[in-house]
């Protein structure tokens, strides 16, 4: 009796597996057929993305509506996606790689995973400093890494430069997330570009000495940390602050109301900016469609959507940026991480 019961449940279980696989196969097959056809008829575009905002999904749906091209998505961290792309090699089904940081795009390019593409629309939509000089990748949205502070305890005039963050007066007052975070890595990479590795290391050491706590949490946690009095200043991406201001959580809005932001510069240079961006893969079987999607995402309407839904800056917003080539963020990334380890930025 029990034996029968067990065998039955095993049978049902394995049946379910096959059902699950079978169902997936069935779904997959027409897709593959479609993929075969697309070379002729342009039906799909396969995207590996690190951007998984609801706004992005809505934009894909809009793109499909306008063009009839179906957007297939795998979303995961950029590092893992690049690894997957690398492993799959020239047979990878992915057509477009989207990351949230120019450094990662640069790495994908350096690994030979992207191909240069150029159209008049793309050249028009994406300003030169927000794309790769050889057109391997294009920026989609712009982000600024800036400083949040407690207006009741801090005079923003003392926070006009990134260098000032390392001043002794902030000892025990600075909040920042872990050095594993790519936004910090890129900020450091920019610092290296501006000041050289030695000066940048000195700066990072100063930051570590000023930390109010061992780096932890995400950017919003740093802002809440200021509101809670754990620290007085924090390094964050600007849109998180804006999102908190417009949060439907009263506590988040209140936290944001106790904090203000200021836009520091690199000693006379501009603000540290980064982009989320995209590149067409070398293996792309649907490169044409990938380009169409790129053009769509950089178009005026999509840009407005990014800015409204996520508070990111549009490509054409006039930001006084620091003037370095975004590719440098990728080139200096490894050096940046090593300096973090050396100075003890956890």
């Amino acid at each position: 009796m029990f034996r029968r019961y067990l065998i039955l449940s095993l049978a049902i279980g394995s049946g379910l597996i096959f059902f699950a696989c079978g169902a997936e196969q069935k779904e997959a097959e027409p897709m593959e057929e479609a993929a075969e056809q697309t070379a002729l008829e342009s039906g799909i575009v396969n995207v590996y993305t690190h951007r998984h905002y609801p706004a992005d999904k809505e934009l894909y749906a809009e793109f499909t509506k306008q063009t009839g091209i179906e957007v297939n998505v795998v979303s995961a961290g950029a590092d893992e996606l690049i690894k997957r792309l690398e492993t799959e090699g020239d047979k990878s089904p992915a057509d477009l790689l989207i990351t949230v940081d120019a450094g990662r795009l640069h790495r994908a390019m350096a690994l030979g995973l992207l191909q240069p593409v150029s159209t008049p629309t793309l050249q028009e939509n994406v300003p030169a400093h927000l794309r790769d000089k050889d057109n391997n990748w294009y920026g989609l949205t712009v982000r600024a890494r800036i400083v949040a502070y407690a207006p009741d305890r801090v005079d923003p005039k003392k926070l006009e430069t990134y260098s000032a963050l390392a001043n002794k007066e902030w000892k025990g007052k600075l909040l920042v997330r872990s050095s594993s975070n790519v936004y910090n890595q890129s900020l450091m990479a920019a610092m290296i570009e501006h000041k050289g590795a030695d000066k940048a290391a000195e700066w990072a050491k100063g930051i570590v000495d000023n930390m109010a706590r061992t780096p932890a949490g995400n950017d919003r946690d740093q802002i809440k940390g200021i509101a809670a009095g754990l620290g007085d200043i924090a390094v964050v991406n600007s849109y998180y602050y804006n999102m908190m201001q417009h949060s439907d959580d009263e506590a988040e809005r209140e936290a944001a109301s106790k904090v203000e932001i200021t836009f520091p510069h690199f000693d006379g240079g501009g603000i540290h900016i980064n982009v989320s961006g995209a590149g067409v893969t070398k293996s792309a079987a649907n490169a044409e469609n990938a380009i169409k999607l790129l053009e769509f995402l950089t178009s005026e309407a999509a840009q407005r959507k990014f800015a409204e839904a996520n508070f990111e800056y549009a490509l054409k917003d006039d930001i006084k940026y620091d003037g370095i080539s975004l590719g440098k963020l990728g080139e200096n990334n490894e050096k940046a991480v090593m300096i973090f380890d050396q100075v003890g930025w956890k």
Partner: peptide, 21 residues
């Protein structure tokens, strides 16, 4: 561990593999 900012072996593995390539 990542969220709590506690560096363990896993943190190191990710750092070496991805950030330092």
């Amino acid at each position: 561990v990542k969220y709590f900012g506690v560096s363990t072996f896993t943190t190191g593995i990710f750092r070496a593999w991805f950030a330092l390539g």
